[in-house]
């Protein structure tokens, strides 16, 4: 089983998320994470979908996604050079005695403290999967009260891009 990161451009129509999510569940594909937001073109949204499966599953996922009228373009960036980021917010319970330690950990991961309560610290960290997981593990001993992750977003490195402007169309997928 391999994890694939798909960049999916969709029309910014109501219901498009339901169409994509519904497709995954009824065809039995597993979504690892899904992040969605608008792009440089307000009429177009971009979904970054991390999906687990072998080559056959991925082929079906891609083809079935293409059949959705609202889906404009799909790029599997997994095999390419790409930057991926995820943001996490973690609320840890810390008594004043341990506050320094937690702040040190935050420093190491280049995380930021975004809120400070009497017995809690809320930290924000961005990075790839590995970094976020390591950050979470480092904080676990102090007691994580709450954790939320955005899901991964990804972009190709260098001059290459997966936007609307390049000549990739649905027809390139057979």
């Amino acid at each position: 089983m391999m994890r694939h990161t798909l960049a999916v451009l969709v029309e910014n129509n109501p219901g498009v998320l339901a169409r994509v999510a519904g497709l995954f569940s009824r065809r039995g594909f597993n979504i690892d994470s899904l992040a969605v937001g608008r792009t440089e073109n307000p009429a177009v949204s971009r979904m970054t979908i991390v999906v687990e499966g072998d080559a056959r599953v991925l082929e079906q996922v891609t083809k079935q996604l293409h059949k959705l009228v609202d889906v404009i373009k799909i790029s599997d960036v997994t095999a390419e050079e790409y930057v991926d980021r995820e943001l996490v917010l973690i609320k840890v319970s810390v008594d004043p005695a341990h506050r320094g330690e937690v702040m040190q950990i935050a420093d190491i991961f280049r995380a930021r403290i975004v809120d400070l309560g009497r017995r809690t610290l809320t930290l924000e960290c961005t990075g790839n999967d590995g970094k976020i997981n390591a950050f979470e593990e480092s904080l676990r001993p102090y007691g994580i009260k709450e954790l939320v992750r955005t899901g991964k977003i990804a972009m190709l490195r260098g001059a290459r891009f997966t936007g609307l402007q390049d000549n990739g169309t649905k027809e390139e997928v057979q």
Binding site: V10, E11, V69, V71, I72, L164, K170, E171, Q174
Partner: peptide
């Protein structure tokens, strides 16, 4: 005008 809908009708000559 449906950018996400363009059924392929002409088969790939190589195939």
């Amino acid at each position: 005008r449906l950018p996400g809908y363009c059924p392929k009708t002409e088969p790939d000559p190589q195939q």
